[in-house]
């Protein structure tokens, strides 16, 4: 069963035809060639496929694991993927901080973590260490040991605060 869907990704409108059983992750990677969103487990456990989504009528973007969303569900939704975090050539403070602190190694978990960290800072601009850890508990990283990731999120939070001043 196929569905014709309208939605936006990173601000751009799309009209696609997707099968019922395909996931948002598949649509992004295979149909829209937005391969920054990674497939790490297809079970909602690793967080590598996290994207931001604003459902029709919702007031804000929330992170979800795109392997856990069926394509036909996203009709009318707005989606932000890792490719949409930077604006023009300007990296998000989180992206900048990940490079500077050494928070990325193999890089495979990085897009999902950045997405989730961005959602965290949007709802809580000044999170504590414990709050950052809790917010990222569903994003597995095997390389870094997480410490630099926590440093990066804190650094980005400071940058964002300074930018607001």
């Amino acid at each position: 069963m196929n569905h014709t869907l309208h939605f936006t990704v990173n601000g751009e409108p799309y009209e696609i035809v997707a099968a019922s059983h395909h996931t948002l992750l598949q649509v992004l990677r295979e149909q829209l060639a937005l391969t920054g969103t990674k497939n790490g487990c297809e079970a909602g456990e690793c967080g590598a496929c996290a994207v931001l989504i604003r459902w029709p009528g919702a007031d804000r973007f929330e992170p979800v694991n795109s392997c856990m969303v069926l394509a036909p569900e996203v009709a009318g939704a707005e989606i932000v993927t890792i490719e949409g975090l930077a604006h023009d050539d300007q990296l998000d403070p989180l992206q900048e901080a990940f490079i500077v602190t050494g928070a990325t190694q193999c890089g495979f978990c990085t897009p999902g973590i950045l997405i989730n960290a961005r959602a965290l800072l949007d709802r809580n601009p000044d999170p504590s260490d414990a709050e950052i850890r809790a917010a990222l508990v569903g994003n597995l990283c095997r390389c870094t040991g997480y410490i630099r990731i926590l440093d990066a999120v804190k650094m980005a939070a400071r940058t964002r605060k300074e930018a607001l001043r």
Binding site: L34, G36, T37, L91, F98, I99, T104, T110, P111, L114
Partner: peptide, 13 residues
């Protein structure tokens, strides 16, 4: 800094 860092944080890698 990691020379491929930008590619990895933007999803371009």
């Amino acid at each position: 800094l990691r020379i491929e860092g930008r590619a990895k944080v933007t999803g371009a890698a």
